[in-house]
Design a protein around this nucleic acid. Structure first.
Length: 190
DNA sequence: GTACAGATTGAG
DNA sequence: TCAATCTGTACT
């Protein structure tokens, strides 16, 4: 397995969002590892994107990690109860990131049966991700990183759709910036 | 200081 | 269809 390096993340966000499909997210907890194959992603491309927390280049205490160079974690709490795992892309100062929406558990058959990581809030619960990962560098971290995919994903396997839960984003709500693997049962919301 | 809404989820 | 539950943000 090869750990994804900086140059993977600094490419254009929509390219990275599709490139992440089929890659493996690895979370190390003590001596154990939890591995999930990424099957669903969404791109947020500030400052132009009205669905982005960094719309119009706004910098706040919450979203400042979004401006980091590609390969860092931007994590935050929504609805007071669920964390959302994002991975930054592009270069320092560009508020672009990718929301990881669903994983297929690889080495945990119980989680696989229960679909414990099929949804952005659920996968953070499953991997025990919280605010302590804010700004974590995926190229250096010893407890969270990404590894390259085994199989080649052909373009015909990637479905493009509208993003979820951002109806307020006007003309940006119809952008096809959500990507998932066709026919994969671990994708959230059929 | 107060009010309010959100990149969700699972139960009813 | 709805409530749970917390924090950033935009007001007073």
């Amino acid at each position: 397995m090869v750990i994804l390096k900086r140059s993977f993340y600094t490419r254009p966000t929509l390219k990275v969002a599709q490139g992440l499909l089929g890659c493996f997210l690895v979370r190390r907890i003590g001596k154990k590892k939890l591995i999930g194959k990424i099957v669903e992603t969404e791109a947020y491309i500030g400052p132009g994107d009205k669905a982005s927390h960094a719309y119009q280049g706004k910098i706040t205490k919450r979203n400042r990690a979004e401006f980091l160079i590609g390969g860092h974690v931007y994590i935050y709490l929504v609805y007071g109860m669920y964390y959302q795992l994002n991975i930054t892309t592009s270069k320092e100062g560009r508020p672009e990131c990718i929301l990881i929406r669903a994983l297929e558990p690889i080495n945990d058959s119980k989680a696989k049966i229960k679909k414990s990581a099929s949804g952005p809030g659920k996968l953070c619960q499953y991997l025990k991700l919280d605010k302590s990962f804010y700004g974590e560098d995926l190229c250096k971290s010893k407890r969270l990183w990404l590894e390259n995919k085994k199989e080649r994903i052909s373009l015909s396997q990637i479905v493009h759709s509208k993003r979820i839960g951002i109806d307020y984003a006007q003309e940006y709500k119809d952008k096809l910036w959500r990507f998932y693997l066709r026919d994969n049962e671990f994708v959230s919301r059929k």
